[in-house]
Design a protein around this nucleic acid. Structure first.
Lengths: 221, 221
DNA sequence: CGTTGCATTGAAATCCCTCAAGCGAGGTGG
DNA sequence: CCACCTCGCTTGAGGGATTTCAATGCAACG
């Protein structure tokens, strides 16, 4: 997949300043930016200068192996914060799944905010800890679930996080889904087709899925 | 596997009070306890009353699926902290891999410490964030690596975290290794045998492995 | 010396991947 | 407006990595 590269230094001119509520009750000055489809937000090993919050659209964070194998570590939906690191550099890359708008906050600014504010620290910790919980759940999926179970869990999760008026609108490609679930695009496609044959889902378009199965809907709630 | 159950309320009598350095520079009053092989430290859904630090031995945290499939989320080595939750309950169970000694700190005591101390909060956040980093690395392994790569990565990791005088002393069973790597015991065993045939490792006993391969040793460092 | 638990090994089966082709929507240029 | 291309998705056939099932080995222990 072709990925455009974004260099923050060049684009600062196009920023719009704003106050971002990074976590519950923690407001910090930052600015917002838009990214187009597949545009790189930051890359692996890059200096972690900013913390990001999704205002609209979806972001994926990914890890690449030398031979091209890719694992999507997370999808970030509106309201989600990402890019906060312990060390000085990012440990994976982030790209816009579709066109999206982000709030950027300088790491140094965030540090200054939390320096004397335990409540702000608790809020930041909660963000990270909730992220950790999500990762742990996903590890069980990656390590111990079958392809069918993976896709079902994914649909249920997306249905909960990005509900459309009628069913789920999947913002990402089959390749993204596969790299998130540890599968191939073909397997994802086949399982969706089979679920449709069994009337457990219906498809308006390839990206718009309606959940019909009782169990799926329950898992989504 | 048979798992004994531990009920903290019954055992408080046997505790020894101590000051635990939960995170760098953060000392809190707690007490220490010992657990025997396969003894349950806490269970899924249980109230998260304590935070734990490994003093000696190894602990595994696991998630169980209804049909018995198991995923080991992490192994905790001496110095590691585990059991700290956002919500009121534990999200997985923890068991002693072998006989081990833990420091227990009441969650309420930790909360009181961090309440007015941003530095303590930063330390706690760092613990959680480093945990998150480890989980993210492990997700790539689970989702995108072959069985051979998984075992190699595991040996390298254990070699770095639990180095023996000569090679690696694996404290956990093949079942534990398999459930950590998303494989079966048979596959783990076969790959170790194959690595031995190729003189990439040597085995003193089934639990004591010596790394011979250049690449493995490099990965361990 | 039998039992028990853990580890290894083999043979067969299965799930998922790889390779390859076809399909359909959307965009571009003649 | 239609031919043509591209890109993402689907489908099929075959193969391979890993699991499953089953048996054996081996060390510790009573």
């Amino acid at each position: 997949m072709q990925v455009q590269v974004f260099n923050p230094a060049q684009v600062i001119a196009g920023r719009r300043t704003c106050m971002a509520e990074l976590a519950l009750g923690v407001f910090v000055p930052g600015f917002s930016m838009t990214f187009s489809r597949n545009e790189e937000i930051f890359g692996e090993e890059e200096a972690a200068e900013f913390v990001y919050k999704v205002l609209s659209g979806v972001v994926r964070t990914t890890r690449l192996l030398d031979d091209g194998r890719r694992q999507i570590v997370a999808f970030h939906m509106p309201g989600d914060v990402f890019g906060l690191e312990v060390g000085p550099t990012h440990r994976f890359s982030a790209e816009a799944v579709g066109c999206c708008e982000l709030a950027l906050v300088r790491r140094t600014v965030l540090d200054k905010t939390t320096q004397n504010d335990p409540a702000a620290w608790r809020a930041v910790w909660t963000l990270t800890a909730l992220d950790l919980e999500r990762m742990q759940d996903h590890m069980v999926l990656l390590g111990r679930k079958t392809a069918a179970e993976k896709v079902e869990a994914f649909l249920a999760d997306m249905s909960a996080r990005a509900p459309a008026s009628d069913g789920v609108e999947l913002p990402m490609s089959r390749t993204d889904i596969a790299d998130y679930l540890g599968l191939t695009i073909e397997t994802v496609s086949r399982i969706l087709s089979q679920m449709e044959r069994e009337h457990r889902i219906a498809r308006a378009t390839s990206r718009h899925v309606v959940l019909c199965d009782r169990r799926l809907l329950q898992a989504a709630a």
